[in-house]
Design a binder for these strands. Structure first.
Length: 633
RNA sequence: GCUGAUGUAGCUCAGCGGUAGAGCAGCUCACUCGUAAUGAGCAGGUCGUCGGUUCGAAUCCGACCAUCAGCUCCA
C-alpha cells in the first residue's frame, strides 16, 4: 500500500507494518531517532500500523512536538519507578513541560533528595529493560473498572470526566499501566538520560480547594551532552540571579522589615535613574507629557473605577480623618482625574499622558521573588486619549517605541494578541473595531503574533510583549491595552469637530512594565556587567604606588568634569589585587596609572573582561567613552 | 495562602545537647609594588523571634517571622 512522505514522494509498504518500520526503512538514523509519526497532521505512535495513502512525517527530538513525546514517555518512566518504590502512591497527572516533565503523586511520605536519587536509579533500570509502550483502547466502563481496581482514584476521576461513550486509551510498559492519550516512544529504552531535578507541592487540578500533591520535576535528553548543557544553563542562571548579583554588586536588596518592598542602594539608583532618564528623553521625543499622581486617593475614586469591588484583595487601605483611603494599585484613576481637570478638544489628540507611577499591590507571601515579584513597583505607564480612527496609527507608534527600547538592550521579543473574554464590558462592535485596529497595526508592521482568544482584559483587548533574555528565558514586559471602561466610568469627553461632546478612546501602555522587574531582568540579562551607559561606576582609577596618587586624582577629577562616573582606588595594595576587585565589581574600564603614565601624561586602559588595551591620551579615552555611552552599547 | 526545605559575624559557610568557629570583607602595622588575591595582627555574633523540654539549648520540641524551590495568582 502507498503512503506519502513529507517531501511528497510515494512509498510502498506492505500491510501490517508499523510507522517505526517505515522510519527504519527510510534510513537507519531515522529509525533510531524518530520518536513519533505525524500522520495527516495527527501525532501517532511509531508502533501504530501504517494507514494507506496517509501523509507521514517523522518527528525527532529536534522537533518541539517530538520533544514533548520524548518527555511524556519519560514522565511515565518516572511514574513506573515511583510505583515500584512507593506502591501506595496514587498517580495524578504527568505531562511534558518546556524543558522536561513532571508527575504528580499523592503519597503521605514526603519525597526526600535521597528518594529522588533512588527513583532516578529505578528509572535507569526501566530504561535499560527497554519495555515496549503498548497502546490499548478500552471502553469507558472498562477503564473505570481497571483503574478502580488499581486504586488509582485520580485516574478514575479523570476518566469520569470523559464522555460515557468515549474510548479510553491506556499505555502499558512492563507491569505499569497508565491512562494516557499518547503518543509515546515505542519503548522505554529510547530515552537516553534522565535527571530528576526537584520536588514541590502542587494542587490536584491546579486548584487551591483541592488536595496538595507532590510533584517531581525532571528532564531527559537523548545524550548526556545535551543534559550537561542544560544543567550548565541552569547553573549560569543561578550565577546571574539578580538577587545574588544585587547583593554582590550592592545594587538593591530587600530587608526583613519590608517583605516585597525593595530598597535601591546608591549604585542601583544610578542604573534606575539612567533608565528613567532614557525613558523620559524618548517619551518627550514622542510627544508624551508627564504627570505624577498621588499614591493615596480616596475610597470614592476607587469605587468609581471599579477597583474597590474588583481589586480589593490586592489593595492597601487606610483612614485619614475618619475617611477611607486606598494606596493606589494602578495609575489609571489618577490619569482620569488629570484628564478631567479641563475640557479637551479633538485637536489635542492623541493626548499622551505618561507617568512613572509607584503602585502598591498586596501579593501573597509565597509569591514574592526579588525584584521580579514585589509589593510595590513603578509602572512606566502612559494613558493615551484619542479618536477611534487614530487607534491604528497610535498603536503602531507605541509598537515602534517598544521595539526601539528592547533593541537598545539587545532583547528579541514575541507578541501576543488577546481578544474579548467571556465577561467583558462594552458592545461587540466596539470590541471588534478595537481588536481590528490592533490586528491592523500588527499586520501593517508585519509583526507575527500569537492569538490568545478570550484572554483580553475585561475592559478591552490587548497586545503583550514577551521579551527574551540572554539565557533564552521569556518575560512579559510591555503591554498595550485598549480600555472602554474607564472613559465610561469617569465620563470622559472631548469636543468633537462638530461641536458636540464625545467619548474618547483610551489605551494604557507600559514599555518596561515595572522598572523594578525590568532592572531585575537587565541584571540577569547582562549578568551584572552593565553596558557603559548604565554602569554605576564607569571608570575606576587604580594607582600602582602611593607616589601616583596625585596624578590619579587629577585624572579622576578630569573624568568627573566630563560627566563620567569615576571612582579612585588609591589604597596601598598591589595592582593585581585592585584590578581583581575592579573586575569583580564589573567596572567597564579600569585605568592603571604608574610611573609611565605620570611621565607621559597618558592613561593605561583595561577593559572589563578583555584585559589590557594599552595606552591612550585622556582626551582620546574620554572621547571613546562618550561615544560608547551615546550609543548605549 | 498551600507543600517542602532553610535561617549561625557585613558576605559564603562549618559546628547539631556541655558556654560559638573558618575564609573573605573591615580596621591597624609593615611592604611602594605594572594588569584577577603580599604578610602579620586586631576587632566583629543575645546562633531569625518568642515559648517549652533539660542541671545545661545554636543544637531537641512548638508557635511565629523571613528566605528559597514549586503550586495558585500577577507588572
Amino acid at each position: 500500500m502507498p503512503i506519502i512522505l513529507k517531501d511528497g514522494s510515494v512509498y510502498e509498504v506492505s500491510s501490517g507494518t508499523t510507522w517505526a518500520d517505515v522510519a527504519a526503512g527510510l534510513s537507519r538514523k531515522l529509525g533510531k531517532e524518530a520518536v513519533a509519526a505525524k500522520v495527516d497532521g495527527e501525532l501517532v505512535d511509531l508502533l501504530a500500523p501504517v494507514r494507506p495513502e496517509a501523509k507521514v512525517e517523522f518527528l525527532t527530538f529536534a522537533d518541539e512536538e517530538g520533544q514533548t513525546v520524548y518527555r511524556h514517555t519519560s514522565s511515565h518512566i518516572l511514574a513506573q519507578a515511583v510505583k515500584r518504590l512507593f506502591p501506595e502512591a496514587k498517580l495524578a497527572i504527568g505531562p511534558a513541560i518546556a524543558d522536561g516533565f513532571y508527575y504528580d503523586f499523592d503519597v503521605d511520605h514526603p519525597f526526600t533528595p535521597e528518594d529522588l536519587a533512588a527513583i532516578e536509579e529505578e528509572m535507569k533500570k526501566i530504561i535499560k529493560a527497554d519495555y515496549p509502550l503498548i497502546r490499548k483502547e478500552v471502553s469507558h466502563e472498562e477503564a473505570i473498572a481497571l483503574f478502580q481496581e488499581m486504586g488509582e482514584d485520580y485516574k478514575v476521576e479523570l476518566i469520569r470526566d470523559l464522555p460515557d461513550d468515549a474510548q479510553v486509551s491506556i499505555y502499558q510498559q512492563g507491569e505499569f499501566v497508565d491512562l494516557c492519550l499518547g503518543p509515546h516512544l515505542p519503548s522505554t529504552g529510547r530515552v537516553g538520560v534522565v535527571k530528576l531535578l526537584s520536588v514541590a507541592g502542587a494542587y490536584w487540578r491546579g486548584s487551591e480547594q483541592n488536595k496538595m500533591l507532590q510533584r517531581i520535576y525532571g528532564t531527559s535528553f537523548p545524550k548526556k551532552k545535551n543534559l550537561d548543557e542544560y544543567l550548565a544553563l541552569l547553573e549560569e542562571a543561578k550565577r546571574r540571579d539578580h538577587r545574588k548579583l544585587g547583593k554582590e554588586l550592592d545594587l538593591f536588596g530587600i530587608a526583613e522589615e519590608g517583605p516585597g518592598f525593595p530598597f535601591f542602594y546608591p549604585k542601583g539608583m544610578i542604573i534606575r535613574t539612567e533608565l528613567e532618564n532614557y525613558w523620559r528623553a524618548e517619551h518627550r521625543k514622542h510627544g508624551y507629557l508627564e504627570i505624577k499622581s498621588p499614591v493615596i486617593l480616596s475610597r470614592e475614586l476607587w469605587e468609581r473605577s471599579g477597583h474597590w469591588d474588583h481589586y480589593k484583595e490586592n489593595m492597601y487601605f487606610l483612614k485619614i480623618d475618619e475617611q477611607d483611603y486606598a494606596v493606589k494599585p494602578m495609575n489609571c484613576p489618577g490619569a482620569m482625574i488629570y484628564y478631567k481637570t479641563r475640557t479637551h478638544s479633538y485637536r489635542e489628540f492623541p493626548l499622551r499622558i505618561a507617568e512613572l507611577g509607584l503602585v502598591h499591590r498586596h501579593e501573597r507571601s509565597g509569591v514574592l521573588h526579588g525584584l521580579m515579584r514585589v509589593r510595590c513597583f513603578t509602572q512606566d505607564d502612559a494613558h493615551i486619549f484619542m479618536l477611534p480612527e487614530q487607534i491604528t496609527d497610535e498603536i503602531m507608534g507605541v509598537m515602534d517605541l517598544i521595539d526601539n527600547f528592547y533593541n537598545t538592550f539587545g532583547f528579541s521579543y514575541r507578541v501576543e494578541l488577546s481578544t474579548k473574554p467571556e465577561k467583558a464590558m462594552g458592545s461587540d462592535e466596539i470590541w471588534e473595531t478595537a481588536t481590528n485596529a490592533l490586528i491592523e497595526a500588527l499586520q501593517i508592521k508585519g509583526i507575527p503574533y500569537q492569538l490568545n482568544e478570550g484572554d483580553g482584559a475585561f475592559y478591552g483587548p490587548k497586545i503583550d510583549f514577551h521579551l527574551k533574555d540572554s539565557l533564552g528565558r521569556s518575560w512579559q514586559c510591555g503591554t498595550i491595552q485598549l480600555d472602554f471602561v474607564n472613559p465610561e466610568n469617569f465620563d470622559l469627553t472631548y469636543i468633537s469637530d462638530d461641536g458636540t461632546k464625545k467619548r474618547p478612546v483610551m489605551i494604557h501602555r507600559v514599555v518596561f512594565g515595572s522598572i523594578e522587574r525590568f532592572l531585575g531582568i537587565l541584571t540577569e540579562h547582562y549578568g551584572g556587567a552593565f553596558p557603559l551607559w548604565l554602569a554605576p561606576v564607569q571608570v575606576k582609577v587604580i594607582t600602582v604606588a602611593s607616589r601616583h596618587v596625585d596624578y590619579a586624582a587629577s585624572v579622576a577629577q578630569q573624568l568627573e568634569l566630563e560627566g563620567i562616573r569615576v571612582e579612585i582606588d588609591d589604597r596601598n595594595e598591589r595592582v593585581g589585587y585592585k584590578i581583581r576587585e575592579g573586575e569583580l565589581e564589573k567596572v567597564p574600564y579600569l585605568l592603571v596609572l604608574g610611573d609611565q603614565e605620570v611621565e607621559s601624561g597618558m592613561v593605561r586602559v583595561r577593559k572589563r573582561g578583555a584585559g589590557d588595551q594599552g595606552s591612550a591620551s585622556l582626551a582620546e579615552f574620554v572621547a571613546n567613552l562618550k561615544e560608547e555611552i551615546e550609543q548605549k552599547k
